[in-house]
Amino acid sequence: MIAIIDYGAGNIKSLQFALDKLGKNSKLTMDPEEIHQADSIILPGVGAFKDAMEALQRYKLDTILKKEAASGKPILGICLGMQLFYEFSEENGGCTGLGLLSGSVKRISDRVKVPHMGWNILQSNQPQRLLHQLGENPYVYFVHSYAIDELEEKTLVASADYGGRVPAIVQDKNITGMQFHPEKSGDIGIALLKNYEEMIS
């Protein structure tokens, strides 16, 4: 069972519908025992970084996520969920994140329209199982105003080009992040979720 962390973050239903298509059983939960029993965890997220961190802290989910991460359980963060893995975001005047990954989150350059909204091409930064068989120019759907700025280069799997380099997929051991929405990225998104599920199973 996949535990989708339910802390009031936006449209989680679509994520469940996508996992249904892959025949993956998932459950929206904030129950520590259920999260502990789950095979893997997905941290979704839309909205503001600070609000999301406060919500996680309110339900003690920050501690639980750190504990599960340390135990080696696969955790996938999507969109803001991925940003929350980092140490710090400058959103809303600055806020500390979960610190599961080293680096920080910064606003996208105003030289381009913000939010970065729409379909953009994933460019591979390293050969990786996650990127198997996506075909030429795999377009995925992004909606975000902030992006990962500093990170450990070896964790960068794929990126997109928008007012500079936008980290799109990051991975460090059991922690994986996708800045775009795989559940909203058509067949490519479903293929990415399938690759991910195969990789962790």
Binding site: S14, F17, A18, H181, E183, G186, G189, I190
Partner: peptide, 12 residues
């Protein structure tokens, strides 16, 4: 809306 959301994998 819910039935459509179940059918599609694009932004809605």
């Amino acid at each position: 809306v819910e039935q459509v959301a179940r059918e599609i994998a694009i932004p809605f």
